[in-house]
């Protein structure tokens, strides 16, 4: 028991002394996963709105694909991206393998179906009368869609947070395409795995605490947002 407490104590020391390595890892994680979620929302939200609000052939297929990708194993995504970005692969000339860029691509692919599927549910739950109101007030098709998205904003924000939670904790793809290089692609999840493997539980715990804190802050923020909206 006391070695867990000792670990916690050292973890707090690492955080409070602003240990450079620890903070590099934290900021890298936030940067990579933040960018990935931003990209994924640029793809996922329009996709969800399109499928949720319009009828067209193939709509059911897209919905099914989105829901399937929800549970996409991260290592499988990692492997595919590795094969594409490897110097032998079709995109090898980009030189993206083992860079944050590769990790952003992988995490974008992981987050897009989640954000897409949850946005779909979000826009579907908006009162259809909103669409009619907007059109009657002179909105174009795109403006109408935007109005519906605005109505669904809290649910969409929740979708982004779920997506963010998925990618920042994900380890399989980050390890394969990032390579866990210190200072470049070592993020919280891969660092936790490495440090645990090394038996250095302090840093692993410190990062675990940070991950939990981030999750807590985001959820608290979401809760607060919902409260002031009501």
């Amino acid at each position: 028991m006391d070695y867990i407490l000792a670990g916690l104590k050292e973890a707090l020391q690492l955080l409070l002394s602003f240990d450079r390595e620890t903070y590099t890892i934290i900021f890298l994680s936030l940067r990579i996963s933040g960018t990935a979620v931003l990209l994924a929302s640029c793809l996922g939200i329009p996709l969800g709105a399109l499928v949720g609000l319009h009828r067209f052939p193939g709509r059911g297929v897209i919905t099914t694909i989105l829901n399937t990708c929800f549970a996409l194993p991260t290592v499988v995504v990692g492997l595919f991206i590795y094969l594409f970005l490897s110097h032998r692969g079709p995109l090898g000339m980009l030189g993206l393998l083992y860079t944050p860029g590769a990790m952003i691509i992988a995490q974008t692919i992981l987050a897009t179906p989640i954000i897409g599927a949850l946005s779909l549910v979000a826009v579907k739950s908006v009162d259809p009368a909103i669409t009619k109101s907007a059109i009657s007030l002179g909105a174009t098709r795109i403006q109408t869609t935007l109005a519906v998205l605005r109505e669904a904003r809290v649910a969409i924000l929740a979708a982004l947070i779920v997506g963010f939670g998925r990618v920042i904790t994900e380890i399989g793809a980050a390890m394969i395409v990032g390579g866990n290089i210190k200072g470049t692609t070592r993020v919280m999840s891969t660092a936790i795995a490495l440090e645990t493997g090394k038996g250095k539980f302090e840093l692993a715990l410190a990062l675990g605490i940070i991950l939990l804190t981030i999750a807590f802050l985001i959820n608290a923020g979401l809760y607060y947002l919902q409260r002031i909206r009501e």
């Binding site: 960018t35 640029c42 860079t99 944050p100 390579g179």
Partner: peptide
């Protein structure tokens, strides 16, 4: 702004020549 941010991050992530793997 978001677009520029993304471009800078993705392109800025390209490996520089002075790296050895």
């Amino acid at each position: 702004l978001g677009f520029i941010f993304i471009m800078v991050f993705t392109l800025g992530c390209k490996r520089k020549v002075s790296h050895l793997i």
